[in-house]
């Protein structure tokens, strides 16, 4: 088999990887905001849930989380009479998002807390409620601070998607394994795999930089 013949199945897998990365980064970002804001909430219940979520998912392996959602949850569900079987793609996106969300939550929290106290005082003097202050003053200023870390997390997430091949999801790594099993051409296949992931990471980094520039545009406006 010529190496060009590996391309169509690999591209199919790459498309799955792109989708996984896209959805899990998006959902992970939402979770990061929810838990990051929750962690600095004055409501102890919200704070408790956020802290527990962050610590559990940062403190355990992504692979184990993935296996737990895919293999253990259905059995646990059965024990209480619920059908909790998840399609591989759902289990994959869920595990990846929950994981990146836990790391992202710390980024969100840190960025929000880095906004200067002067800004809170100005908001208070203008009689904004704490909620209005958070959403109109603090978070818009915190988002540009978060972006470099979010960029790293997104790339990390792209690379982590390789793990979902272990629950038989047809991503890039899964396809590569299939071809390798068939052809035993490990060097070519794994080299192509490296190059493809690297290319996707470059594109993703560029996208995140663009996003960063977009949310920070007020910082660089020229006079």
């Amino acid at each position: 088999m010529h190496w060009t013949e590996y391309l169509p199945p690999l591209m199919q897998g790459a498309w799955v990887t792109i989708q996984l990365t896209f959805y899990s980064t998006l959902l992970g970002g939402l979770l990061a905001f929810a838990a990051g804001i929750g962690k600095i909430s004055s409501n102890w219940a919200i704070k408790g849930v956020s802290v527990a979520y962050i610590e559990v998912f940062r403190g355990t392996s992504l692979l184990v989380q993935l296996f737990w959602l895919y293999f253990a949850l259905p059995i646990a569900g059965m024990a209480i009479g619920l059908d909790l079987r998840l399609p591989p793609v759902v289990a994959g996106v869920l595990a990846l998002s929950l994981n990146i969300g836990a790391y992202g939550a710390e980024v969100v929290r840190g960025a929000i807390q880095s906004v200067h106290k002067d800004q809170h005082e100005a908001a208070r003097a203008l009689n904004f409620t704490p909620r209005q202050t958070l959403w109109t003053i603090t978070i818009p200023q915190a988002i540009p601070e978060m972006m470099p870390s979010f960029g790293n997390l997104a790339v990390q997430n792209l690379k982590d998607t390789a793990l979902v091949s272990l629950i038989s999801l047809g991503d890039l790594t899964f396809r590569a394994e299939q071809i390798r099993n068939f052809t035993q051409d490990s060097t070519t296949i794994y080299s192509m795999l490296l190059v493809t992931y690297f290319g996707m990471a470059l594109v993703l980094t560029a996208i995140m930089r663009g996003l960063e520039a977009y949310v920070s545009r007020w910082r660089v406006a020229r006079s």
Binding site: D118, Q119, A122, A125, L126, N127, T129, Q141, W218, R219
Partner: peptide, 19 residues
């Protein structure tokens, strides 16, 4: 919140919203 509506403040460091 109710009382604050009567007051306004101008700060030494301006404290404008940069964004």
């Amino acid at each position: 919140h109710k009382m604050r509506a009567q007051l306004g403040m101008v700060f030494q460091q301006f404290n404008l919203f940069p964004h």
